[in-house]
Design a protein around this nucleic acid. Structure first.
Lengths: 229, 229
DNA sequence: GCAAAAGTGTTCATAATACACCCATGT
DNA sequence: ACATGGGTGTATTATGAACACTTTTGC
């Protein structure tokens, strides 16, 4: 029997996705031309409603799959945005997620879905509502994530050089990392492994390709240990 | 004009508050006896619905004020809990917040509101739904917060000794901090100031009282204490 | 005197940083 | 030859952790 306490006023709940990509030594953001009022035609993040039969995270995954065709997109929750007047179309509580995707792999789908554009974060256009705040907070979270974990698995190609990885970090933190120190630090983490192949596009001498190790997560009670293959 | 796109199915949205306090060298949690079905009579976190005319954070503040009588309670968002079947009374999306409060100051209000009890985290009873997960995640967030910022302003009395502060940290991290090193580290942060008064209850020699400086703290990512492992 | 906490100083290991230096190769 | 990035090594500095040691005072 459902108590009357469960008959409270209900809210529109949405997800908004801050989709980051990496291209030409720059961190980019995927923005969409809005097709409904209010602010029809203006730029916004990718959004969608949360259905009754799915979790909020699943709503974000569903929406991302819809535009990219991909199932396993890396997602992190950013924050809940719920100011009463944040959406001039109505009272909407929105949960923001940032997603990381490889631009090259996804370009085809996104071009078909032609209301979407990759823009450089350096000259990001104004977005509707509080979407600019969402991007700022997402970038902040991404930077924190990148200080604790080596990211790049979802932004770089399968195999990449240390130069590419360093340039990605340069783009995220807007500073120049020392090549030698960056190399030593990254390799000490033991989360990427060297391949036999070399890249000769970016350097004359040739730089070894690396890839992220395939890690299996084993759950022992409460603690999760990451164990190598 | 409201577009039909804003006529999507709406959700019940709630807040749940993980209220931490500190007493007798232990971190405590405020739990409530549930007065509605399902699970009437069992223990739960403090919860409440989000109204149409308030932000989610304001809903948490409102609910906290209702039980404590206090306006400015320290709050941090923990996470969104939205599994479809997490609440057996219906589909409810819940935003969890942790709150820090000084137990001594609030005891009167809470005793009046006698369905509430402070329990030690060491022998925390089972709570309903996914509230145990909420507590775990809140504690995790609190620990992270305490590594970056010196906390205690909302858990300790106005004036406190370094011993009290250290015991609070011992309780949060469940380990013993070295007295000398703790003192040096804490004082180097320059966020607390020594008073002229001494406490002679806890030590024979007498220990200076300290209090948090009244100023805006800007802390950019320097860790205070390292978490092991 | 002894215990207990206050408070200071010293040593050691580790990690980040700055930077020098040689290697390999395409132009 | 030289510019460019690859890759290694080293000195310096900062920081945390371990711990020794003195001070003060109630019991």
């Amino acid at each position: 029997m459902v108590e009357e306490i469960y008959q409270h006023t209900r809210q529109l709940v949405s997800v908004d996705c801050i989709i980051f990509g990496y291209e030409n030594d720059e961190l980019k953001l995927l923005v969409f031309k809005r097709w409904i009022e209010p602010f029809k035609g203006e730029l916004s993040l990718l959004g969608g409603w949360v259905n009754h039969d799915e979790s909020v995270t699943n709503a974000a995954k569903r929406v991302l799959k819809l535009i990219s065709g991909l199932n396993d997109i890396y997602l992190e929750q950013v924050d809940v945005f719920s100011e009463v007047d944040r959406d001039s179309g109505g009272r909407v509580i929105s949960v923001a997620y940032y997603a990381l995707m490889n631009i090259d792999e996804q370009n085809r789908h996104l071009i078909e879905h032609n209301s979407a554009t990759w823009v450089s974060l350096k000259n990001k256009p104004k977005l509707i509502f509080d979407h600019d705040d969402m991007v700022d907070k997402a970038l902040e979270k991404l930077r924190i994530k990148a200080t604790y974990d080596l990211i790049g698995e979802h932004l770089l190609p399968e195999k990449f050089t240390l130069l590419q990885l360093r340039k990605l970090y340069n783009a995220i933190f807007l500073r120049e990392f020392d090549p030698g120190n960056f190399r030593k630090k990254v390799l000490s983490l033991k989360v990427i492994e060297q391949l036999d192949e070399k890249d000769t596009f970016e350097s004359k001498r040739g730089a070894f390709y690396y890839r992220f190790k395939k890690l299996i997560q084993v759950n022992y009670g409460n603690q999760i240990f990451r164990i190598e293959n």
